[in-house]
């Protein structure tokens, strides 16, 4: 009986940690939540080690005679989802206040894990808004912002399509921004009074690694150097892929234009 109970606690803790890690929570929050959940279940000796790539949990009720359980969970990929983080946060607060039994808690966690993103048309609208407003921020006029509106929506649609397949994040960022740059160059050469720079800069903001940057700072601050470094590297590489995609397209376009004209 004790074994089943311990196993359930372990599974619940692993699942909660995995959801948070995948949704883009910082390490400190993941480790703290998992530890609180386990301790609330009477597992006094709990150790958690979490990195952006995986989660290690080991628990024992603090008794030399009782068995120790360990689970290693590899975490792959990341889809930023603030609603999941916020719900798990609330879940762990309620759970540690003894509001649910363990089976109820497992059912609740499952419901949180199944939560879907906003529907694709809404997200496309969001991406188009980013293109529109950020090209204004980078000094664009109304024409350029309107083009960036469509370029943002289209390149996000490409990104959503690529996300269905197992594609390297570097290639992903590169392709999406190259596509955005192609739209920007094409539109700015056809439409008078439109410069390509605000269009491209507004559109590539969609793919800028804002989450890894902020999270790596928080990880460094709480002393999780390993994940801080790995997220910082991720941010730098993603930014490079984005800039490379846009840069190569503008360069090639200008070379070809020089040949044709």
């Amino acid at each position: 009986m004790d074994d089943v109970y311990k196993n359930k606690v372990l599974m619940m803790a692993v699942y909660a940690g995995e959801i948070m890690m995948e949704s883009g929570a910082e390490i400190h929050r993941v480790e703290d939540t998992v530890e609180r959940i386990c301790i609330a279940c009477g597992m006094q000796a709990t150790e958690v080690f979490s990195t952006p790539m995986g989660l290690f949990i080991s628990l024992n009720s603090g008794d030399m005679e009782a068995p120790t359980y360990t689970y290693i969970k590899r975490v792959r990929g990341q889809v930023t989802d603030m609603t999941k983080i916020s719900r798990i946060n609330r879940f762990s607060r309620n759970f540690t206040a003894n509001e649910y039994t363990i089976d109820e808690a497992l059912a609740r966690l499952e419901a949180i894990g199944k939560g879907r993103q906003y529907p694709l048309p809404v997200k496309l609208g969001g991406a188009a808004m980013i293109g529109l407003f950020f090209s204004f921020i980078f000094g664009g006029n109304l024409t350029e912002a309107t083009i960036a509106f469509f370029a943002g929506g289209l390149s996000y649609a490409l990104s959503a399509y690529l996300n269905r397949y197992q594609i390297n994040y570097f290639i992903h960022g590169f392709l999406c921004c190259a596509f955005a740059a192609i739209i920007a160059m094409g539109a700015s050469s056809v439409i008078p009074g439109a410069d390509y720079t605000p269009i491209i800069t507004g559109t590539i903001m969609i793919f800028v690694p804002g989450v890894p940057i902020t999270n790596s700072i928080r990880d460094f601050l709480s002393g999780d150097m390993l994940s801080g470094l790995s997220r910082l590297t991720e941010a730098v590489l993603t930014a490079t892929s984005i800039a490379l995609g846009a840069g190569i397209v503008t360069q090639v376009w200008q070379m070809l234009g020089g040949v044709i004209v």
């Binding site: 930023t80 989802d81 603030m82 999941k84 991406a127 980013i130 529109l132 407003f133 950020f134 921020i137």
Partner: peptide, 22 residues
């Protein structure tokens, strides 16, 4: 400037699935 910054931030909120209330 405030308006465009608010709009751009709201766009990111949609992509990152920030709860509607926030």
């Amino acid at each position: 400037q405030a308006f465009i910054a608010a709009g751009g931030t709201a766009g990111f909120c949609i992509i990152f699935r920030v709860p509607l209330r926030e």
